Amino acid sequence: MQLDRLAVPALRISIAVVFVWFGLLKVTGSSPVAALVSAAVPWVDPGFLVPALGWFEVGLGVVLLLGRLPRLTLVAVVAHLVGTFVVFVQAPALVITGGNPLLLTANGEFVVKNTVLICAALVLLGRGQERSPG
């Protein structure tokens, strides 16, 4: 399909750009979600965690841009994004209002939108498997 030839690479590149961009914000200390990340993983020093996570995200984004190791990279992307939901367990007051999981805070919306990125990565994984032999 003609659209697949444009849409699939565009999807991969757009995920990569998001990962590089958000990762660089963490690395430079400019991320608006640094406190959220710290609350999600309170047993790790945020001075280490936030930049390390940022570099990991930049690395995933760069590898996606280069199109190298696509299956491994996409699995890592999915695992990372699924991991963002730990904040609902570790610091629910930061993501839901008044104990009602249907009333999300801005942080909660930020995390829940990751379901779209997870599904996008799964689509790319599925497309890669369709094209691979055996």
Score class of each variant (00 low, 15 high):
residue 1 M to D: 10
residue 1 M to E: 10
residue 4 D to E: 11
residue 5 R to I: 14
residue 5 R to S: 15
residue 7 A to I: 13
residue 9 P to G: 13
residue 11 L to A: 09
residue 11 L to C: 07
residue 16 A to D: 00
residue 17 V to C: 06
residue 18 V to I: 00
residue 18 V to W: 00
residue 18 V to A: 08
residue 19 F to M: 14
residue 21 W to Y: 10
residue 22 F to K: 06
residue 23 G to P: 01
residue 23 G to V: 00
residue 25 L to K: 05
residue 25 L to F: 08
residue 26 K to L: 04
residue 27 V to L: 03
residue 29 G to E: 05
residue 32 P to G: 08
residue 34 A to E: 08
residue 35 A to T: 04
residue 37 V to N: 01
residue 37 V to W: 00
residue 38 S to T: 14
residue 39 A to W: 05
residue 39 A to L: 02
residue 40 A to R: 02
residue 42 P to D: 11
residue 43 W to E: 13
residue 44 V to A: 13
residue 46 P to R: 02
residue 46 P to G: 06
residue 48 F to I: 08
residue 49 L to D: 04
residue 50 V to M: 04
residue 50 V to Y: 02
residue 51 P to G: 02
residue 53 L to H: 02
residue 54 G to C: 07
residue 57 E to G: 03
residue 59 G to F: 11
residue 60 L to D: 05
residue 63 V to E: 02
residue 63 V to P: 04
residue 63 V to S: 03
residue 65 L to E: 08
residue 67 G to T: 11
residue 69 L to W: 14
residue 71 R to Q: 12
residue 71 R to H: 06
residue 71 R to F: 06
residue 72 L to W: 14
residue 74 L to R: 08
residue 74 L to W: 12
residue 75 V to E: 10
residue 75 V to L: 13
residue 76 A to R: 07
residue 76 A to P: 06
residue 80 H to N: 12
residue 83 G to D: 11
residue 83 G to C: 12
residue 87 V to P: 02
residue 88 F to V: 11
residue 89 V to Q: 12
residue 89 V to L: 15
residue 90 Q to F: 00
residue 91 A to G: 06
residue 93 A to W: 03
residue 93 A to K: 09
residue 95 V to G: 04
residue 95 V to K: 05
residue 95 V to S: 09
residue 97 T to G: 04
residue 98 G to Q: 13
residue 100 N to T: 13
residue 101 P to R: 06
residue 101 P to M: 05
residue 103 L to F: 11
residue 105 T to I: 07
residue 106 A to T: 14
residue 107 N to S: 10
residue 107 N to M: 05
residue 109 E to R: 06
residue 110 F to A: 13
residue 110 F to Y: 15
residue 119 C to G: 13
residue 119 C to M: 06
residue 119 C to N: 05
residue 121 A to S: 09
residue 122 L to A: 15
residue 123 V to M: 14
residue 124 L to Y: 11
residue 128 G to W: 08
residue 130 E to C: 07
residue 133 P to E: 15
